[in-house]
Design a binder for these strands. Structure first.
Lengths: 191, 191
DNA sequence: CAAGTCAGTGAACGATCGTTTGGTGACTGG
DNA sequence: CCAGTCACCAAACGATCGTTCACTGACTTG
């Protein structure tokens, strides 16, 4: 008997990567089909079902895959900032969030719209990360106009709104405008 | 020859209203089909094509219909506020915007996602309305922390972000939380 | 009354989708 | 070598979709 975790798991990942590639090309979940993913992965549609129970399982796997990428990007951006500049760390985190949304609009929309924003979902984890960031700011002496929880929600929600409208735009302004918006949001919640 | 603008235009409206009803029930454009609209309107699917060239024309008509409703609701809310309280007028406008998005999530998402946010689109008109509101505030002596254009964009974008996340939530908090968020946004851009 | 116009319809076409099935070929342990 | 296991696939099924077409019946016009 062959080891089911050797080739098996590797192909599962290859399918997810093919799905991610396809979603990036499509720019939306319209057209993200079993047949399309199979074509992108170079296998037969029926083979998908060897690794995923059904389409919703594949989409769920893809979303988990994407959240890992986003979370890693945000952590990396944070750790690239000096420890003694907590506000810069918050800004860097949020800008990494934006960069992901700008680079992969299809993925971003899929994550937001196809995964209920529950109190235990991955999005809430990101917000909590932001809250901790603002709490560190306050402890470091940064004056906030509102409590750190509210500041984090405000910056996060505002950023999401800006990114969502950018996605809906037919004439996307340059990315730096979205990143500047993050700075503007942060400066609004600080004194 | 019968007058083509008698029964004809009336049935066009009935189809649009049936489509609006269906979209409200569905909660999303998934399932908003020619066949479904025809069933909701009590006619045959083929009859739709007597009034709309194709499905995209019907959707476009529905979106226009929705923007009229939203714009009217915002204007009505504004005019219900006293003339000498410009900040309250801005708040009332934005809350009417929220109320529409909360009452008709399917319509709201359709409007945002299926109509490119161009410099001449209906959404920009709403933003412009907000800008004028904040300019009136400034002339009336209200102190803003940022220029009125930026304040309007900030409040509008933040509100959209909050509403969009509410739509994605599986456990929708009560509507007043979203309306409070508008107040919080306004208080952030004022001194 | 006859001719013409037009909204409305039932039935079908072609495409696309998720999913299932039965079989094939490569590889395994004994 | 042989029986067993498993990944993989071609083909098909059933459903749903947008759209087209030939036809009908009611109405208007002359």
């Amino acid at each position: 008997m062959r080891n089911p975790w050797g080739q098996g798991e590797r192909l599962r990942l290859e399918i997810l990567e093919a799905a991610a590639r396809l979603l990036s090309e499509l720019g939306g979940e319209q057209g993200l089909t079993i047949r399309g993913v199979a074509r992108a992965a170079g296998i037969a549609p029926a083979s998908i079902y060897q690794h995923f129970a059904d389409k919703s399982a594949l989409v769920k796997g893809l979303i988990d895959y994407d959240y890992e990428q986003l979370s890693a990007a945000m952590s990396a951006a944070e750790e690239q900032c000096p420890e003694d500049a907590p506000l810069d760390r918050v800004r860097a985190q949020m800008k990494a969030y934006c960069q992901f949304a700008l680079d992969s609009p299809g993925h971003y929309r899929l994550m937001i719209n196809n995964r209920p924003v529950s109190r235990t979902g991955p999005l809430i984890g990101i917000v909590r990360q932001m809250i901790e960031g603002f709490e560190r700011c306050e402890r470091a002496g940064v004056r906030l106009r509102i409590p750190p929880q509210r500041a984090a929600v405000m910056v996060f929600v505002g950023t999401h709104g800006r990114v969502a409208l950018w996605h809906a735009s037919e004439d996307p302004t340059h990315a730096h405008a979205i990143l500047d918006f993050v700075d503007e949001l942060v400066s609004l919640v600080t004194e």
